[in-house]
């Protein structure tokens, strides 16, 4: 009886081990660390993939549709961060209150965005 129970236990642990293995394997290179703009400026985080949230600084946006290359600054109220994104200007870019970006710092200290997220305008407004 106890042998049978042990077997059942081992068998039910197998999927967990497998899942753990898969998750560990997948974890590499897919983690992005949350930093505020001030933190990112203060520390040396050149190698890591970061996720940074901030408000768009008005008049900081330049866009070259031919490349295409989008450059802008984000602020968290204290410090600014210049970022550049090689991609198409999203429709709701100027409109969005908050910009979330993922990427890394390049050698010149500019933030190279690999993924740009804007809060979808379908935003179900929170009611008080």
């Amino acid at each position: 009886m106890s042998k049978k129970k042990l077997k059942v236990l081992l068998l039910s642990l197998l999927p967990l081990f497998l899942l753990g293995f898969l998750a560990l394997r997948a974890f590499e290179n897919s983690a992005a660390y949350y930093y505020t703009i001030s933190e990112a400026r203060a520390k040396d985080v050149s190698e890591q993939k970061l996720r940074i949230k901030g408000q768009l600084v008005e008049d900081s946006v330049t866009y070259n549709a031919g490349m295409p290359l989008l450059q802008f600054s984000l602020t968290d109220g204290q410090s600014h961060l210049r970022a550049s994104y090689q991609g198409v200007l999203p429709d709701n870019f100027h409109h969005s209150e908050e910009v979330i970006m993922e990427g890394t710092f390049d050698s010149s200290g500019e933030f190279q965005v690999s993924k740009l997220m804007l809060q979808c305008p379908s935003k179900y407004e929170g009611e008080e």
Partner: peptide
């Protein structure tokens, strides 16, 4: 720890074999 976000490559690597 610091908040960590996993991107699409995590989900792809995890889910494709399964």
């Amino acid at each position: 720890a610091r908040e960590v976000v996993l991107d699409a490559s995590f989900f792809n690597q995890l889910s494709v074999p399964l």
